[in-house]
Design a protein around this nucleic acid. Sequence first.
DNA 1: GTTAGCACTCAGCAGATAAAAGTGCTAAAC
DNA 2: GTTTAGCACTTTTATCTGCTGAGTGCTAAC
Lengths: 352, 352
Amino acid sequence: MNRRDKILKLIVDHFIKTAQPVGSQTLLDEYHLEYSSATIRNEMNALEVDGYIEKTHTSSGRVPSSKGYRYYVDNLRESSLDEEIKHRIQTVLDHKVQSAEEVIKESCEILSHMTNLVSVVLGPNAREEKLVNLQIIPIGERSATAVFVTDTGYVENKTFNVSEKIKLDDVQSCVKLLNDRLSGTPISELVNKMQAIKPLISDLIVGHDILYQAMLETFLRFASDRLSMYGRDRLLDQPEYSKDINKLKKMLQMLNSPHMIRDITEQGTGEMTIRIGEDDNALDDVAIISAKLKVPGQKEGSIAIVGPRRMDYSKVIDYLEYVVKSIEEHFETHNVDEQPATKEEDEKWKKN
Amino acid sequence: MNRRDKILKLIVDHFIKTAQPVGSQTLLDEYHLEYSSATIRNEMNALEVDGYIEKTHTSSGRVPSSKGYRYYVDNLRESSLDEEIKHRIQTVLDHKVQSAEEVIKESCEILSHMTNLVSVVLGPNAREEKLVNLQIIPIGERSATAVFVTDTGYVENKTFNVSEKIKLDDVQSCVKLLNDRLSGTPISELVNKMQAIKPLISDLIVGHDILYQAMLETFLRFASDRLSMYGRDRLLDQPEYSKDINKLKKMLQMLNSPHMIRDITEQGTGEMTIRIGEDDNALDDVAIISAKLKVPGQKEGSIAIVGPRRMDYSKVIDYLEYVVKSIEEHFETHNVDEQPATKEEDEKWKKN
DNA sequence: GTTAGCACTCAGCAGATAAAAGTGCTAAAC
DNA sequence: GTTTAGCACTTTTATCTGCTGAGTGCTAAC
């Protein structure tokens, strides 16, 4: 590894650990480098010019930029799998009586616990679920129910109040428009598409915002029904959030937002997608590491780790990869429903 | 209402609204009282001597004490039911297709939303559920599973690792002790009883803390399976928590703790129990308003509102009462399974 | 190309000071 | 015997000031 890369790696490593901007002297003191702080400063300057690191103010230490993290993830990180995660996951898998759902749940809890980040699961089946039909049914003078039906037969509904009287014909044409445009849309794309349609609805009908809002909320409920999160409270232990409640609020909002389902689902080409928020982006100071999860007999699901950009990528990526692989292998080789006990296990039970 | 009460009421009212200590001048300015600030000060002094209000420091305004809140709740508050909550709950109840569980869920979401506090439900059936049997089953050299079974047939298990080898005999006698002592215990009392037994176990077995911890965690999972919470994130909007993350952490911890189930369940004589934390108490700066919920055909459940002591008691109590009563009446008069449509409703459907 | 040295920047912290919001007490007014 | 005006006193909070430490960038020498 060349010197510049080495320095970038150390900066990212150190910042991940301390959450403090890192300076040339600190780096020298901490890692006993064989060149002077001035040299490091020169390299840092170059790294900054190229956009890998940033300063928080003119005379501060450096902080990795989004680009810097990206480069780190792609080229600099070293793998880090320890025995503990292996052992804990193995314990879960050894425990035969559990369903796939339970195994996934427990694994994600371990994942969250060991990374101190939030883990999110989009259950199998849900990833490719499509909207089939949408209805708005008046159930009184001033209230109506929005109903969503998906191709897996799932129904979600939400009753809402309308403040003014809305014309039934308008509602009908609005529903027709929505069905024409949205039928067959996978739920992961639904929010995007709905946003695109919004102006069309607003032309069509008075009080469109109430209608639109209601549908969005129905969808939100719909989404959160198939999205499980573990370890949300652990965010409080991350210094970026414990020092700035507003950041925490923003983070929680985004975890609850209907866009979450898309962010988890939207995969790159590989098995694992690493999304690092850009400063100008909605993701902001957030990183999402998500992986596909294939369990035989079920459609594809996803597991993701969500946290601040300053996360231990090496650890998170390797842990997540290990967990997903372990679960997949487990369910490929074992048949969940009829579980033949191994000789070894038989003996243990007899001892009892 | 005598003058002292009036002043106490205003202090509590104002503090609930602003979360700031309230002084004599503020009170005068804000509420145009017909006596001077000096008189108010005298009364405040008396109220402080009697323990209804406190100072945060020598020359600060006053803050209601636990006793003050209590008195306020019992004697001073005025009922406050607005149309909005009635309307929103009614909308939920009008929507006939929903099960009791769904109705309760939606109502609690409304409750949380309109009070900006957390609402907690202990589902019907769960309140009187009793532990029947407890087992610890070794499933390998270094791991074991704790299993809980209740009288409703519910089973919860948790696999855990042991760091040292624990003798099987010890485990057995430990399990026996636990079963002897705990069988038939309602889940609400389980944590208390377990705590009492802890020293006995520690005499009995090496590595007892791991075992005890595992059982506690099993129970925690058990408890959280039957406890639903709504609006946890709204705590962030309460100034007491948005200014002091540690308080927030403590609050979340207590919401997650296995004691929660007891705090929600432990009822006084009436339908509604109002628990206001004492300073020296574990509840600390927390108030819990909980109500029994009886739905025909199911055992008793509970709905509770949890938040900082500084909460709008008038609103919370009346809202909660209204919601519980509405749900109960709804399920008393309506048979959920076969729903005869009223004439009025018939017509609405035909119009469609 | 590397590094020692130096001038410069800026956040953060410690005091100092002043203002604001309170209290308690006393003595006069009602 | 209350009530209240007035005043001295206390404490928090905000603002300014100066100082320190961690950092940078640049230049000149190695």
